[in-house]
Write a protein that binds this DNA or RNA. Sequence first.
DNA 1: GCGGATGAACGGAACGTACCGTTTTTCGGA
DNA 2: TCCGAAAAACGGTACGTTCCGTTCATCCGC
Lengths: 194, 194
Amino acid sequence: MAGSTRKQGPKRSEDSRAAILAATREELAENGWRKFSVDGVAKRARASKQTIYRWWPSVGAMCVDAGLELLPAQGRLGRDPAERVTDIFLPLEIAARAGTGHAVLRASLIAAADDADAGEYWRAWLQDNLRTPLRNVLAELTAKRIIRRDWEIDIAMQLMLGAFWHRLVLMRAPISDGHMASQAGLLLKLFEET
Amino acid sequence: MAGSTRKQGPKRSEDSRAAILAATREELAENGWRKFSVDGVAKRARASKQTIYRWWPSVGAMCVDAGLELLPAQGRLGRDPAERVTDIFLPLEIAARAGTGHAVLRASLIAAADDADAGEYWRAWLQDNLRTPLRNVLAELTAKRIIRRDWEIDIAMQLMLGAFWHRLVLMRAPISDGHMASQAGLLLKLFEET
DNA sequence: GCGGATGAACGGAACGTACCGTTTTTCGGA
DNA sequence: TCCGAAAAACGGTACGTTCCGTTCATCCGC
């Protein structure tokens, strides 16, 4: 069925989708994950629960969606090696430092960690938007003889993200301005030539 | 009331306490944090819910208790600098690699991250059992001129624990044998003299 | 008898599903 | 071309179930 004919009916309401995700963020920031209430989201968004359950495979996936929507599209592409690495992870830092982003992002990640389906969704995003770009940049830096040849991508990911989770999720500590730049500095120092 | 009057009646039942924490671990491993059920714990442990609510200030605190009980008392004290650092964090690695420890520890940490009270409890444990010992060891290594003087304890904690959370909580990836030793190696390399 | 324990019961909240009536979109026949 | 039928999405209400956190009744050991 190449052309699966979409027969009839109205399209999905973008207004409703946006209202539901905004309400999800409010609910996550106020109540966290365990006390998160779908009824509360429906009431806030003036949406029917049916609409929520129709479009999201699980409550956790909806929370991850709401969290990811908080990340700004990455802007500049730096020239300096450290900047190249930093820019990949900068959206996380920016989102965590803006408004209630800290609480929303934390609860959203907790949802991804606690719910198996949501976790798969979240890790797929991580793979596409952070891991692959980082691997490309590191490969380029290897070719330019700026870093050693024997780096491992998972070690690099752990170094760039581990401290972020530690502060954001477990310690509830603020994310400082320049956090990702610092981590990128550590990474390049560990991987530098000779 | 300087002289605390001798109380009458029976003491707290150790059997009940142990059964409740064991049941909590089963429940956490099977259902995670959001679907964690106090009724389920009571049923498994053949305990009354009143007993649970009497002795733990919150459900999250009980889950953290159950998780911490999984950590073995740390054994040897190494002589090598890397071993000294490794030994502090080794109980986490051991617990995560044994049986259902991976799932229990993950859900327990999620509870600590999601519940404010449980988080305080958890961070107090972290401070006493990991942060302070690490600071002592690092101070000793500084005196012996093995590492530089300008290390920061929070950077060190992030480096030792960040990758662990990343794998255990967010990625659901196994913790390899020797994980903490590797992290200790990275730490000493970053902090080494000259 | 006092304090701890079990077990049953309570009102309230949230879950996930099933309808309802309405609105929006597309298709096919007059 | 126009118009009505069919399909799908929507807000809203209701249902039965599960879990929460608390309270009561009843034992038991010091």
